[in-house]
Design a protein around this nucleic acid. Sequence first.
DNA 1: AACTGCGACAACCGCGACTCC
DNA 2: GGGAGTCGCGGTTGTCGCAGT
Length: 292
Amino acid sequence: MGRSPCCEKAHTNKGAWTKEEDERLIAYIKAHGEGCWRSLPKAAGLLRCGKSCRLRWINYLRPDLKRGNFTEEEDELIIKLHSLLGNKWSLIAGRLPGRTDNEIKNYWNTHIRRKLINRGIDPTTHRTIQESSASQDSKPTQLEPIMSNNTINISFTSSSSTPKLETFQDSISFPGKSEKISMLTFKEEKDERTVEEKFPDLNLDLRISLPDVVDRRQGLVGDRKSTTPRCFKCSLGMRNGMECRCGRMRCDVVGGSTGSSKGSDTSNGYDFLGLAKKETTSLLGFRSLEMK
DNA sequence: AACTGCGACAACCGCGACTCC
DNA sequence: GGGAGTCGCGGTTGTCGCAGT
């Protein structure tokens, strides 16, 4: 059985948004907040699909968007983040306030790719073009969660060489969890510099905290619906405002996450790398993994 | 002036992940 | 536990404007 369409395509507009449509959408979201994109178009009197409304709001109409050209600092930060995260545009956008994933993705494809190529750097691998063509095995940089024997390791797979895990400094076991998190360090086989040395202005100081035991107790341990964390801003008591983008019932009722790694969550570092949402699947059960 | 090519970016689409019932 | 509904992400396409011929 196929997937049902997200909306009634026969009665929806497509293509560029008109000023009137924009105004309707802004007025509706100002009055009712974000959330339930599927029903929003009808409620707002728009002949658009919910996804289209969401995209329009997130990428163009949101009041906290920074319009205008990217600065040189933003360029460099995008390059560094891309070298570490790959095409995880929403994660990259989370580190650039006022920028959207779509905007960064477009900017990457139109400007930065060319810029890197002009520098003699392969934009996919972030290696020099000679190096890239020399080694067929090289993979683009990415974060690789490695899971074995109930132990989760998190490693940064560098594009320039395969990182070699040197020592396990520590490991943390969580009450009620079979997994343990290993804190680890690595050195690269060819390049002994650390990530910080290579990118001195990039702050990759990760903080891993213990799971939210208090919330779990309050929210009925074992109940799948109650173990999902609230969005970061809801947890700070800013729900249902411009700050809280989850704007959904479950944030009020059970403190549920929107499951979004976009917007407020990532802008605060909360759910950075999208790991918090995995909590329900017990992949990584920490409440927060933040970049300071 | 008309045509063509290209860059920029807004918008769409498909799919996986997540949540609800 | 599982199906259905919904959301969000990343890749792709469409459209517009501008420069060059």
